[in-house]
């Protein structure tokens, strides 16, 4: 049961990553590699500030701002200097590696007994129920604070998902989505598409950095290598969510990105729990994701065939 709670919590934390990837990949149609640097940027800013004694909420917000700056930089390189989107992302990601080492001053910062956002969440358990004991659930005992951590993460992700929906439905957000579809048309309406791109990528990486900041606080350390492979994770989650939810309107896509991330983590958890030979883990994960992606299509085909 700890595994399920842990998988869902990490899935929700990484859902912010997939929301960020959703903006760059689905709205602007390119795989923004800045993500791999900004996850770590968020983690390293949050970790070094918290260890230096700043309040965790402030540290997390500064991490978010740092991600926004990194993403905007990619946007500026892409739009003002006319460099290919993929390459702009690679440039900023590469630079961020050194920046992250400077931010932390070393390659890895562990939280010893510092108070993090997750300490607050754990303490809520004691405040609400007067105890931090374990509770029985489906035949196994779970520390109550793990459940509160899960609940608080769920609330944060739901609020941010809602805010993102409202933002993208606003005039500004609609213009931003249109920029991804048809730049010329949007420019003809008198909208500055460069600004849209820069703000959009900033927003995307702000969410990704926030995901990194939360992940570091959840797992108890920030490491300069933690961003490796994150873009692929995000892309997989966005696509899994999209395929499973099967609807293309904005609200569904956002919910899909969040749930896709959780489902992806749960699939990895199943692979782990089956006790695979350690070297086959990634193979099995890839296989599971493949099945998750083709299953809805196969079912649809079958249903279609039954109709007269």
């Amino acid at each position: 049961m700890s595994l399920i709670i842990g998988a869902i919590t990490i899935g929700l934390i990484l859902a912010l990553l997939s929301l960020g990837v959703f903006i760059s990949f689905r709205i602007f149609n390119f795989a923004d590699l800045t993500a791999e640097g900004s996850v770590t940027l968020g983690a390293s800013i949050a970790a070094s500030m918290i260890v230096a004694g700043y309040p965790p909420l402030l540290a997390t917000l500064i991490a978010l701002a740092g991600g926004f700056m990194a993403g905007s930089l990619t946007g500026i390189i892409h739009t003002k200097f006319k460099i290919n989107g993929l390459l702009s992302g690679i440039l900023v990601m590469t630079a961020l590696y050194s920046v992250n080492l400077h931010v932390m001053g070393k390659s890895n910062i562990p939280f010893m007994s510092e108070t993090t956002l997750f300490t607050y969440f754990e303490n809520l358990a004691t405040v609400f129920s007067g105890t931090s004991e374990s509770v029985g659930l489906f035949g196994s005992t779970i520390p109550l604070k793990d459940i509160f951590v899960l609940a608080c993460t769920l609330i944060i992700v739901t609020i941010l998902g809602g805010l993102l929906y409202l933002f993208l439905k606003s005039n500004f957000g609609t213009a931003m989505r249109a920029t991804g579809n048809n730049q010329q048309m949007v420019r003809a309406q008198g909208v500055n598409t460069n600004t849209m791109m820069i703000v959009g990528l900033g927003l995307s990486n702000a969410l990704i950095a926030l995901s990194g900041a939360l992940l570091a606080q959840y797992q108890g350390f920030a490491d300069v290598q933690m961003g490796i492979g994150m873009l692929v994770l995000g892309l997989a989650s966005v696509i899994i969510g999209e395929v499973l939810i099967g609807e293309k309107t904005l609200g569904y896509l956002i919910t899909g990105a969040i749930l896709g991330s959780v489902i992806f983590r749960l699939l990895v958890a199943v692979a782990l729990r089956l006790g695979m030979p350690p070297n086959d883990l990634k193979l099995i994960t890839a296989l599971f994701v493949f099945i998750a992606l083709i299953l809805p299509r196969l079912l649809k085909k079958k249903r279609g065939a039954e109709k007269p």
């Binding site: 595994l3 709670i5 998988a7 782990l272």
Partner: peptide
């Protein structure tokens, strides 16, 4: 003895520890 290896992925590493706790 069951051996697991996160193959360099920190999020998987966290899940492996959860799996051990479970």
């Amino acid at each position: 003895l069951s051996v697991s290896n996160a193959q360099g992925d920190i999020t998987t590493l966290n899940l492996m520890l959860d799996a051990a706790v479970t």
